[in-house]
Simulated assay, not measured.
Amino acid sequence: MDNLLNIVTGISLFISFFLAFFMLIVKTKHKISNRLFAFFLIISAVDISEPFISQISEGPSNLGMFRTTLAFLQIPIFYLYVLSVCYSDFKLKPKYLIHLLPFLVSNIALIPRFYSVDVASKLDFIINRQNMIELQLTHWLFHIQVVVYFTAVFLLLRRAKKLYLENNSGGNLNSYQWLFQLTGVLAALYVIVIFKNIFKFSDYPYISDWIKIGILMLQPFITCWYLYKALNNPGLFRNIDSKLKLVSDFPLEEKTIKPEILNEDLLKLKKYMTDEKPFLNPDLKIQDISKEINVPVRELSVLINHQLGQHFYDFVNTYRIENAMQILKDSSKSKVTILEILYEVGFNSKSSFNTAFKKQTGNTPTSYRKAL
């Protein structure tokens, strides 16, 4: 069993470090997010390296304990990674150093009775771990951190998706689904780790050992899944400005538009969409239309998202689908493929086109064309 664990751990470490190395050297304008993800992979790799660390040092050691406390850095780094891929204006700031606090607190607490004592005292500390307030503090702090950070990540993703829908018309929401899935898988993994820690300090420590073995066996598959998804979703959101506000966050007076202004802006908007066809631009943003029709972004956002009851994303797609329907009805264009049509009307992915088309018409583009 030990040999198998060493082999699996070695494979996991190789994949993690290889992917981290790739993320660090690949040429891209998204260097910060790539470095954060690489750092996350490296910390995760160190976290699962316990079988190798135990072979290097006999018995408990400062290196082994420090490796354990590095787990406090994993989730904060992942949170910053999600921030960086959601918002185009993300920058590392001194205020983010606060995320180091749990890691520092846990290590400072371990100095008097672990880091600064001899090997015999370290061994006694580990044997009597159930009575050691430092380890109890560390474990409770870790569990609280897991709950707080994953709640924050899911709320962040929810807000980012709403901001994207209210201000953008391009891209593919599958990237959001991947980021949500990634967070969900990671959250599930940490829940398993919490159960492992609970059993470790119970009367059934052997259950903790079996859970640890299961996690090590899963690690290579999860890392490969990270790699596959990351390479297939390089764009993610990336074009959301963190300074943007949701319409629901606007003061009540800003969401109330006078009827005469509302009608004037609505006519102006519809005329521009019909005459100029800006929806043909796959990267159209609400700011682009605001500039062209001379209506403030906030007022236009309230008009579309609040008054018309649509996200900007759906509003623009309505015009794209109507244009696509006209092409599909045109018998002279019967040879034009669905793929050519979706690019022609402003979509940039087949899945988003099919989803929007079925949402508006109840049919897929292919079935709609056959029914004509």
Rank of each mutant, 00 (worst) to 15 (best):
N6L: 15
N34R: 06
F21P: 01
R35G: 15
I32C: 10
S33C: 07
K31S: 07
F14L: 15
N6P: 05
K27V: 14
L19Q: 11
F22S: 05
L24A: 08
R35E: 00
F21A: 02
R35N: 14
T28D: 13
N34L: 02
F22W: 14
M23R: 13
K29T: 10
V26K: 02
V8F: 12
T28F: 06
K29W: 05
F22K: 14
R35W: 00
S12N: 09
V26A: 03
L36T: 09
I11A: 09
L13M: 08
I32L: 15
V8I: 12
H30T: 08
I25S: 08
F21M: 02
A20R: 14
I15K: 01
N6Q: 11
N34A: 05
K31V: 08
L36I: 06
F14C: 12
L36Q: 04
S12L: 09
K29F: 02
L24D: 13
M23L: 10
V26Y: 02
L13W: 00
F14N: 05
I32N: 03
F17T: 07
A20W: 05
V26Q: 04
N6K: 14
I15N: 00
H30S: 07
H30Q: 15
S16C: 11
G10L: 03
L24W: 13
N34D: 13
G10F: 03
I32A: 10
I11Q: 02
F22Q: 14
L19P: 00
K29P: 00
I25F: 12
S16V: 01
F17I: 10
F17V: 11
F21T: 07
I32M: 11
L24Q: 13
N34H: 12
F18S: 04
N34E: 10
T28G: 07
L24Y: 14
S16Y: 00
G10M: 01
G10P: 00
S12A: 11
L13H: 01
L19F: 06
V26R: 01
N34Q: 11
L24C: 09
F18K: 06
H30V: 03
K29N: 11
M23A: 10
F18W: 15
F14A: 14
L36R: 04
I11D: 00
S12R: 09
F22N: 06
S12G: 05
F18R: 07
H30G: 02
F17C: 12
G10E: 04
L13T: 09
L19W: 05
I25L: 12
V8L: 10
I25W: 04
N34V: 01
T28A: 00
T28L: 01
F21W: 13
H30E: 15
F21V: 06
S33I: 10
G10D: 08
A20N: 14
L36H: 05
L13E: 08
I15W: 04
L36S: 07
V8W: 10
F22H: 10
K29A: 02
N34I: 03
F22Y: 15
L19C: 10
I11R: 08
F22V: 12
I25A: 04
K31F: 09
I7P: 00
G10C: 04
V8Y: 06
T28H: 08
M23D: 12
F14Q: 04
S12W: 09
V26S: 02
S16D: 00
I32H: 01
K31D: 07
L36K: 09
L13P: 00
F18V: 10
F18A: 03
N6F: 11
F22A: 06
T9L: 00
T28Q: 05
G10T: 06
G10N: 07
N6Y: 13
V8P: 00
F18G: 03
